[in-house]
């Protein structure tokens, strides 16, 4: 599928936003100002953006504990996200969710998820809504290599298959479930697992935005047309630890540096559009500068924003009680 200049600019802006957002959270977390713990998506941007470029606001995604990238790719407000991570009342979830639970239902973002494997059944539910109400929407379930071994993922894939749901399962295999290598933890081949459920799957280089975009586009279009679920196995990498503070002693000493140098999805994107003379460096540099300003603004506003008030402790548990 040929992408327009506007789409390419949008894709780059989205990936850049994720990268800079995560780099900034990484830096700010080190100061101790950010409560709790965060799981950063830097390095995996081509997945979130390559998939979500194929979606509209009425489509839904279920995300993971490493959800910032999915949020940004699905259109969540960056300032609201940053404020949420800081636990502020102005956050997207009013400071009640934090990094692991950012959601924006108006944009079809059904939530990051603190439970590994928690999102796949929910995505089936969103797909069931679309199918029952005949809205033409699709749902995407993002999950990591850790989640791929959870029973919920297998149950969701089987259910999607027997109900023929418009849902696409995206396995973001970044090589590590916490500290445990996916090369060890995944028995057999995820593609064969999908095939076993009768779900067509494809393995894609998750660093390559264009490959992800094309493969996801095909699966999403098929699901939207009533062709049932699809599966993507994306091989990619995260640049930071499982959580901030993870010393990553389980990785090879030069592993991340080498990935950043050779397999960085942003660099690959720039090289590709430059070689094809689709976008020039000036346009891409301008986007980077704009994004930097946006992240700076979001961070400054988040730090200055008020905390929730004591009364907020007791609200929003129920619609009515």
């Amino acid at each position: 599928m040929q992408l327009s200049r506007e789409e390419l600019l949008r894709a780059y802006r989205s990936m850049c936003t994720i990268r800079q957002f995560e780099e900034r959270v990484h830096a700010e977390f080190a100061t101790g100002d950010i409560p709790g713990f965060v799981h950063l998506y830097a390095g995996e941007e081509a997945s979130a953006v390559g998939v979500c470029m194929n979606l509209t606001e009425r489509d839904s995604i279920a995300s993971t504990h490493r959800g910032h990238g999915h949020c940004i790719a699905k259109g969540c407000d960056v300032a609201g996200m940053m404020a949420e991570i800081y636990g502020r009342k102005s956050g997207l979830c009013a400071g009640k969710g934090g990094s692991m639970h950012i959601a924006d239902l108006d944009r079809g973002m059904l939530g990051a998820n603190g439970i590994v494997g928690g999102g796949a059944p929910l995505a089936c539910g969103a797909a069931l809504t679309a199918k029952t109400l005949k809205t033409g929407a699709v749902a995407v379930a993002f999950g990591g290599d850790g989640a791929s071994n959870q029973g919920t993922t297998a149950e969701a894939m089987n259910l999607a298959s027997v109900w023929r749901l418009p849902v696409v399962f995206v396995l973001e295999d970044n090589g590590y479930a916490e500290s445990t290598a996916s090369a060890w933890s995944i028995g057999g081949d995820p593609l064969v697992r999908a095939e076993g459920f009768g779900i067509p799957g494809v393995r894609v280089d998750g660093h390559d935005f264009f490959a992800v975009h094309a493969a996801a586009g095909e699966a999403i279009a098929r699901a939207r047309d009533g062709g049932g679920p699809g599966f993507l196995h994306l091989k990619l990498a995260r640049y930071f630890g499982h959580f901030e503070g993870d010393g990553m002693t389980y990785r090879a000493p030069d592993e991340v540096a080498k990935l950043r140098a050779e397999r960085d999805c942003l660099k690959l994107f720039r090289r590709r559009v430059g070689e094809a003379q689709l976008l020039d460096d000036a346009a891409l540099d301008a986007i980077e500068a704009e994004v930097a300003a946006e992240i700076e603004d979001a961070t400054r506003r988040a730090k200055a924003a008020p905390m929730p008030s004591p009364a907020d402790l007791l609200t929003d548990v129920y619609v009515s009680y």
Partner: peptide, 28 residues
């Protein structure tokens, strides 16, 4: 069958799907 859905024996799957469907506009 569109509104009365038999499921496989897959409690996490269909209870989770019910939760996701509720979140997106159905009343399962």
């Amino acid at each position: 069958r569109e509104r009365v859905l038999d499921t496989p024996i897959t409690e996490s799957g269909f209870i989770g799907a019910a939760a996701g469907a509720a979140l997106t506009g159905l009343r399962p």
